[in-house]
Design a protein around this nucleic acid. Structure first.
Length: 181
DNA sequence: GGAACGATCTGC
DNA sequence: CAGATCGTTCCC
């Protein structure tokens, strides 16, 4: 299991996103296989970066391979992997992972044993990702990072419009690792 | 200064 | 299907 190379992420979010499927997200004892992602970039009205740099989205305009965490709905966090080049304002939202290790820790944080990380808010709660993890470099092999265990991305992921947005609703920038065959 | 609104989740 | 709950952003 080797850490992801930064060069792998230094490309357009909608190109990187499907290739992040089946990679591993690690945060302390918690490991999960990425199975659902969405792409955002600064040309996209649904993106936090659409209207330029702000205090919140500054990480998204920074270097690829860093973690962009934001707080929303007054109670949830969402985690993104910054892609592209400095100044681009691109990222891939991690929407769901399949838990692989640290299930006990995830269950304790979630307060249940089912549906541990099958949604962006649930994923962050299970993996303990909050604003203190915002800006973390995921490509240096640290406790929080992205890793590759050799499992390739699915050849035919499900591709759909993105979830939970009110603009840019027709852009098919959501990728799901379909289960089975 | 104030109001509106979320890249969501849960329980009814 | 509506309520929770608060930081960020935008408008006056």
């Amino acid at each position: 299991m080797r850490r992801l190379r930064r060069s792998f992420l230094t490309r357009d979010s909608h190109v990187v996103a499907p290739e992040l499927l089946n990679k591993l997200l690690v945060a302390g004892p918690c490991v999960g296989r990425i199975v659902e992602v969405e792409a955002y970039d600064s040309t996209d009205p649904a993106s936090h970066t659409f209207r330029g740099v702000t205090k919140r989205n500054a990480i998204m305009f920074g270097r690829a391979g860093h973690l962009y965490v934001y707080f929303t709905y007054g109670m949830h966090h969402c985690a993104n992997v910054v892609t592209g080049r400095v100044g681009d304002g691109q990222a891939v939202l991690l929407r769901a992972v399949t838990p692989m290790s640290g299930l006990d820790v995830m269950a304790a944080r979630r307060g249940r044993t089912l549906h541990l990380a099958d949604g962006p808010g649930k994923l962050c709660q299970a993996f303990g990702l909050d604003l203190s993890a915002n800006g973390t470099d995921l490509c240096v092999g640290g406790a929080i990072g992205l890793y590759d265990d050799g499992v390739p991305p699915p050849e035919l992921p499900l591709i759909t419009p993105r979830i939970g947005i009110s603009v840019g609703v027709d852009t098919p920038w959501r990728w799901v690792a379909s289960s089975g065959t």
